[in-house]
Design a protein around this nucleic acid. Structure first.
Lengths: 177, 177
DNA sequence: AGGAGATAGTTGCCTGAGCAACCGTTGTGG
DNA sequence: CCACAACGGTTGCTCAGGCAACTATCTCCT
């Protein structure tokens, strides 16, 4: 993640005591739960993606996004959805392109820009990852929260997200336009 | 971390039909909210810590933990609370020690081990970070969620966390080869 | 007691990513 | 039409962090 990324050593047993770490108030407990849920789940997902042949979570995000949009997409429009800087994105795309999962081409409407398209190989790879996603999230997320509970999470954390996003935007952190 | 408010109108001009790709179900929305809330909040916190003079979030975690435990603590007992590997921790502690915020000494009961203690300078630094923490979390977490809502978050995400933790722990038996 | 493992911590090597400087392009005001 | 700012993307530099190998110690089992 940020640097919240793949770890094989730092998972499992290391989280044990953190799981039951005593907290002094409701908000701390909520933060602990949020943090733990996020880290454990992404760690597991990334780990299983890697085992299935996809180097990292960011690759999955990129491929998924490109499949969703359907047509060519430009790096600058990806920046809001992937949590890397633009230089990081350039190199991430370098790697993914080198692996043959996406292609770069010239953007006709803006000669500064680049068009990215997913290749057949990329689509296939993404398809291969679907069961992984379904397994992991099915076991630890979809299967754990009822749809109503999921809606609650969305409502509660959506507030946090939007509030924080507003704070950050006010400081000029991440312009999404 | 896909802020719902983010817009990519540059692309929608070309691909308006497919770009929106709204989240298809309750669980995806919940995951998006979780991810967004976590990333945005930690990014903001880390950024403000840095501005206040503390290089990173991990430094804060380490100092906070050392203050909480009071006495000397060993690196291995820290691994559960900081999400880094042991080698990463070694070097993180190197840096923090070099900055004079903690001290290493020999562990009398186990000659392999190390004792870590927080210095006065470290305590002071941590103290200086408290207002930062209170401001950020006050604005974007504590102030956004009522105590009852925080409890809900704890209950819901606690399930996810524990379930995922269980899956990871049982990884030895459950292989995907 | 003694040897086979496990454990705590450190280190070498390498990759991934942020920052800042840069280049070519686009857009804007005069 | 031109000068100049803003933008999209890439690259050099640097650093944090993971993995694997290593050392020194401890633990357990016979």
């Amino acid at each position: 993640m940020t640097p919240a990324t793949a770890t094989s050593e730092a998972t499992s047993e290391h989280w044990e005591s953190s799981v039951k770490a005593p907290v002094d108030n409701a908000h701390d407990a909520a933060w602990q739960a949020l943090r733990g849920a996020y880290h454990l789940l992404t760690d597991r997902f990334e780990k299983e993606l890697t085992e299935a042949g996809l180097p990292g979570l960011a690759w999955y995000d990129v491929l998924l996004m490109m499949e969703k949009t359907g047509g060519p997409i430009r790096p600058k429009d990806m920046l809001c959805h992937v949590s890397v800087t633009k230089s990081g994105l350039t190199r991430l795309l370098d790697r993914i392109e080198k692996a043959g999962l996406i292609e770069r081409s010239y953007c006709p409407s803006d000669r500064r820009g680049t068009f990215l398209s997913i290749t057949d190989s990329g689509r296939e790879t993404l398809e291969n990852m679907r069961p992984v996603r379904e397994r992991v999230f099915g076991e630890n997320f979809t299967g754990v929260l009822t749809p109503n509970e999921a809606d609650e999470v969305t409502a509660l954390l959506g507030q946090v997200r939007d509030s924080t996003f507003a704070s950050l935007s006010a400081e000029g952190a991440c312009e999404t336009e």
